[in-house]
């Protein structure tokens, strides 16, 4: 949860910033950056990369940390049950 909650809040805010800015500051978003590529397009494109990076972070963390925690819990549960058998 220490990673998931902030990450969820972050991506929700980051995603909804796009339609909000498009609606509230259309002139700003229509500003061209390079050639005819404008801020709105770059921001939208960045969403894809942000999503991928967040997913990558999560999976890296989950593969190392969460699975180890889950294994510990499982082991403990198994050890706890043995005397009763």
């Amino acid at each position: 949860m220490r990673f998931v909650l902030p990450a969820t809040v972050f991506f929700l805010v980051y995603y909804f910033l796009l339609p909000l800015l498009n609606g509230l500051a259309p002139e700003l978003m229509r500003t061209d950056v390079v050639g005819h590529v404008n801020i709105a397009y770059l921001f939208a494109l960045s969403q894809f990369f942000v999503a991928w990076v967040l997913a990558w972070f999560y999976i890296r963390r989950a593969n190392s940390l969460f699975d180890r925690l889950a294994a510990t819990v499982r082991e403990r549960a198994a050890r706890g049950r043995r005397p009763a058998e």
Partner: peptide
């Protein structure tokens, strides 16, 4: 451009799935 908004939402949605639902 506005059609592209659909594309963005359709991918970002998978973060919800990954973080909260899948496992």
């Amino acid at each position: 451009y506005d059609g592209f908004m659909y594309s963005v939402g359709w991918l970002v949605a998978y973060l919800t799935v990954l973080f909260l639902i899948a496992e």
